[in-house]
Design a protein around this nucleic acid. Structure first.
Lengths: 250, 250
DNA sequence: AAGTGGTCTAGACCACCAG
DNA sequence: TGGTGGTCTAGACCACTTG
């Protein structure tokens, strides 16, 4: 019976009062408003207390409905800041290199990158596995935060061998890493590997994404080789799960 | 401060009573038991009421903790059946063809496929976009359910042109579709495209996965061409988000 | 300072699953 | 049929964001 929620024509009428008061009914009504454009992408919803009153229910039930829409990617929240209508997903191809800015602009979005920090740190086990370096060896770590139309959608960690990139700290680290590699160090890429998996966000990723710790995220891990087959770098991309659609042609 | 939850050594001691009673503290304690193997993969947890009593909290808070672990992929639930410890993820490469069985066995898992149905249906819009066929044209749809070690992890819909595969209904549809194409119809593949995105499960996918409608899932969409560049088929794979890790070498 | 989201309590009823 | 998970109520306090 509820199957209709996913098959319904756009123009279907409002639900009965009884259904409106359940979490599922509220979910449907909000989804209808979002799809019809009554609530526009990026718009902040009114407070949970107001919405709960409007739907004649409690905050717990209302939040249940909002959470459903969050896991579907129609709404998103910023920790303690409120609920917002989710913008369209960015179509993203992890096999291409240094394309965040270009891809975003090609899709009519406004990308911004912020450098969080730049440090030499001991090689962590997961990095060791990807770069084939001993755990504890000093390596370069660059952490960045990336925005789409003002919304933080991505937290990235780049890990690379420090001796292969002397003087990297003087480069502009808010653009494409690939361009820097090519222009300043004459690197050209060979193969690559990527992984995609769902994760619960740890604090280091949750905070720059303005999400609550433990929220679901999509982790895209990438590792690149140069033409000689040497592993050059790897990165860990923590995406808001609702901000991205991966598309790859093989 | 809570950052330690993701960095802590395996052998760290139990938390203070105060922390144990918060959803986050409970999350940590359960995670510890899962990681240490006290609770084994596939094992069913005791009832929510028992757990709530054990942690001296209410069911609402307890469920909050369980939900965190669910979104992290450490626990999973089967609708109305209870909570279970999640088995390891299947490492899966969508660019390979017909590999569910082989991949699963190579990773020491026991795969099973069940045919749900086989029908000629009107071409849906999303299928039309992938197969470049008019909406409404009759096409073949095969729906299957796939298990890993007895757990339903995948619901798949295959869509193909009926006239290209006469007599397909007589084949064994619980194995690799690719093998059937090649052996019975002499097809050989050219390129392919795949997409990965998070979704809220609609009823048709949620039910065979034994999940609640609206739960988060991972949708892997694939479309294959033959060597002449003709689009042969497409499929929609709805995975339990915690059952899969996509890995692709490009 | 006010209002917000995040969290928690202590109940309750229902539909469903298993014994 | 008893126990389970799913859902819901009607409050409450706190930390934080915002004006």
């Amino acid at each position: 019976m509820h199957e209709s929620a996913w098959e319904r024509d756009e123009g279907a009428g409002p639900k009965l009062d009884g259904e409106l008061r359940s979490a599922f009914g509220i979910r449907e009504e909000i989804e209808r408003r979002v799809r019809s454009g009554i609530w526009a992408p990026g718009e902040r919803l009114t407070s949970e207390r107001d919405l709960a009153e409007h739907f004649e229910t409690t905050r717990v039930t209302l939040r249940e409905a909002l959470s459903m829409l969050e896991s579907e990617g129609r709404l998103y929240r910023e920790d303690r800041r409120g609920w917002f209508v989710a913008p369209p997903r960015l179509v993203y191809d992890p096999t291409e290199r240094g394309t965040f800015d270009r891809t975003a602009r090609a899709q009519g979005r406004v990308p911004v990158t912020r450098l969080l920090d730049f440090a030499v740190v001991p090689c962590a086990p997961r990095v060791s596995a990807l770069l084939a370096l001993p755990v504890g060896l000093p390596i370069l770590r660059i952490r960045r935060q990336r925005f789409l139309d003002g919304r933080a959608v991505l937290y990235v960690e780049h890990h690379l061998q420090p001796d292969a990139f002397p003087g990297l700290e003087t480069a502009d680290l808010t653009g494409s890493m690939t361009e820097i590699y090519e222009r300043d160090y004459g690197f050209s890429y060979g193969g690559m590997v990527f992984e995609i998996t769902t994760v619960g966000l740890h604090p280091a990723a949750a905070e720059p994404l303005r999400m609550a710790v433990g929220s679901p995220g999509l982790l895209v891990t990438r590792a690149h080789d140069d033409r000689a087959g040497r592993r050059v770098d790897c990165d860990f991309e923590y995406w808001r799960h609702d901000a991205i659609l991966v598309r790859v042609a093989a």
